[in-house]
């Protein structure tokens, strides 16, 4: 957690509870526990965001907690830009991080893999691996999606690739 993120993000990440259970979707029993921890971390993270008036996404999961979807938004020059995102929990989770996708932006930016998966920074994966199994979905959103939006959306707005939703 040395470089690659701004100090506010770093502060926020520290406040998100760390997870303890190393279990993926394949581990029936353990995964349930893991999922509970994930949900608690997310609730905490959202509460933090609401408290600091920096709420920037909504998220729901499937019943088993392997597929997640939601909306994220970014405000630039007093205009709100909202996008839908989705991701699945990989089988090797939590050793592998989830791949977050924003399908509607597919093809609009170079910082994206085929299928709309966002291209995370080089720092993310080593950090994730180092903190396995303590990092969860909330951390992935905080350290992955949020910085990506902050870096790419203004660029795309400038290029006229996207339009405001409001």
């Amino acid at each position: 957690m040395s470089a690659g993120w701004d100090s506010e993000t770093k502060e926020t990440v520290k406040k998100i509870p760390l997870l303890t259970i190393r279990a993926g979707p394949r581990d029936k029993e353990e995964w349930g526990k893991r999922l509970k921890e994930e949900l608690q971390a997310l609730i905490k993270y959202i509460q933090l965001n609401k408290a600091t008036d920096s709420d920037w996404f909504t998220i729901t999961s499937g019943k088993d907690g392997t597929t997640w979807e939601g909306k994220c938004w970014y405000i630039h020059n007093l205009h709100k830009y909202e996008f839908s995102f989705e991701f699945d929990i990989p089988a090797t989770y939590p050793a592998a991080s989830p791949e977050i996708k924003i399908p509607e932006l597919d093809g609009k930016t170079a910082k994206m893999y085929r299928g709309g998966a966002i291209c995370l920074t080089v720092h993310f994966k080593p950090l994730w691996a180092k903190n396995c199994p303590h990092f969860g979905i909330a951390h992935a959103l905080c350290l992955g999606l949020a910085p990506w939006l902050a870096a790419e959306i203004p660029f795309m707005i400038d290029e006229g690739a996207i339009k405001t939703s409001s």
Binding site: L39, N49, D53
Partner: peptide, 20 residues
Amino acid sequence: SLEDLQAALQEVQKEKSSAR
């Protein structure tokens, strides 16, 4: 329970964000 937590997550998201 897991359901409770999911419901709690939805609740949290519905709360109004404190305007700063």
